[in-house]
Design a protein around this nucleic acid. Structure first.
Lengths: 244, 244
DNA sequence: ATGGCCTGATGGTCAGACCACTTATTTAAA
DNA sequence: TTTAAATAAGTGGTCTGACCATCAGGCCAT
């Protein structure tokens, strides 16, 4: 049986269009959608169809209707924590440094938690990731994505959804910095060695060691990234104007 | 004015009723539902409302509509995997616990940073906040808002916009838990004492001490919040299903 | 049996109307 | 001037009744 023909239902098309708008960023979290009447006019469909689309999106948790008020793009709980970050990062110069500082705060603790909670399966996955990293390096690549994968997987091992989400965003936002860092002579190899050490500590359940190693690892990276001068400047500025 | 509170929307009622029927076994997997016209007659509602209910159930994957044929209960109602995670997390107790865990990770480090960077003005503000807290407690209040103010101000002292933002959101999300915690006999006083100690450490620039004191402070709070049993349960669950 | 063609029931869509609620503005009262 | 009540406009929520598109099943001529 060939199954050609499109039997796209009208309300499904609307659902798709709204989702696209959200993906494209034309509609952000918390934004108000046009009224049902407007939408029915714009899309040249009946209000009933618009409503069915709304019901569908609503039960998918993407939007939220309030009688007498309007329909809004739902605010994803975790997004509330993460989105503000993204905006800060791209608008401000200090963003990268602040982000990295945050990473320095969180990630050693995160490694510690991972040492406590990682399952054998997860440890296996981590080892696999490091093997891939080794291959990449051998073939001359830097393996930035693999680097991200390792740190992300570490977050997953904590079983804390919030930490996972935050680390994912932070690592995304730091892609530039990571590339910059890994371009330094000998860094990719050094990075792999560090990862191996950390994983060994996690494997043996040594929380303190995992924490310490991760801290040193991040300090290594940071040293390559920001010069001492940049850091001092930043701290001096901070000391002057400290409120909003 | 008394309000009988009948906010339930018609289509939601229908969704509920259908779900009940499925739960009760009156509708099995694969069964055909009554036609939309029938349902609208039985429930004494318009067909539009029935349709909206159908759309909702459909996008939840519980039913399946085929034009010209009918509407059927979907097979394999495996609903445990996709949605619940992200959406429910923050309302459930697990969410609060994860949030608090994050606080436990970040805030000691944050106190350490504050000890390093807090300006004299900020320390003064912190002292002022604690004085207000003392007044509140003396007059029998718990001072939940003051508690938040202290921790927020600590974040401000780090001069890191991202940390400030995150702490603000986290503390907002944890309002409930904080109130619950401060209702415990003697907690408000104990909390004030801890805050004073922490502030003293910050004032003297003792990073390690500030970090340690904050850690202990949070452990105190947590002990009152979650029972050991709850924590064990969570960790056990996490150990079972650890991927996506 | 096979294929095509009615027929009836079902879901899909539409237009227009009215209700219930929220919000902001205006108006009246203090 | 400040505050509270009344109003108006806009929104989602519901209803009615109609028509279209599709499918399942029965019917009949092949």
């Amino acid at each position: 049986m060939f199954k050609p023909v499109k039997k796209t239902k009208v309300y499904e098309e609307i659902v798709t269009k709204v989702k696209e708008m959200v993906d494209q960023g034309r509609l952000k979290s918390g934004d108000q959608l046009p009224s049902e009447r407007e939408l029915s006019e714009v899309f040249k469909v009946s209000r009933s169809s618009v409503r069915e689309a709304v019901r569908s999106l609503e039960s998918q948790g993407l939007i939220e209707s309030r009688q007498g008020d309007g329909t809004y793009i739902a605010r994803q709980p975790i997004e509330d924590l993460v989105d503000p970050l993204a905006s800060v990062i791209f608008t401000e110069k200090d963003g990268q440094m602040e982000l990295f500082e945050m990473r320095r705060l969180i990630e050693p603790q995160l490694a510690s938690l991972a040492a406590e909670r990682a399952t054998p399966e997860e440890i296996e996955e981590l080892e696999e990731i490091l093997n891939i990293q080794e291959e990449k390096i051998s073939s001359g690549e830097m393996g930035t994505n693999v680097d991200k994968a390792f740190h992300d997987k570490l977050a997953v091992a904590t079983k804390n959804a919030i930490l996972i989400r935050i680390m994912d965003t932070v690592m995304d936002s730091l892609t530039e910095s990571r590339e910059k860092s890994l371009q330094i002579e000998g860094r990719p190899e050094k990075s792999l060695v560090r990862h191996r050490e950390i994983l060994r500590a996690i494997k043996s359940g040594d929380k303190e060691l995992a924490e310490t190693l991760m801290r040193e690892h991040l300090e290594d990276i940071e040293t390559g990234l920001f010069t001492v001068k940049e850091r001092r400047n930043r701290e001096d500025q901070a000391r002057k104007g400290g409120d909003s």
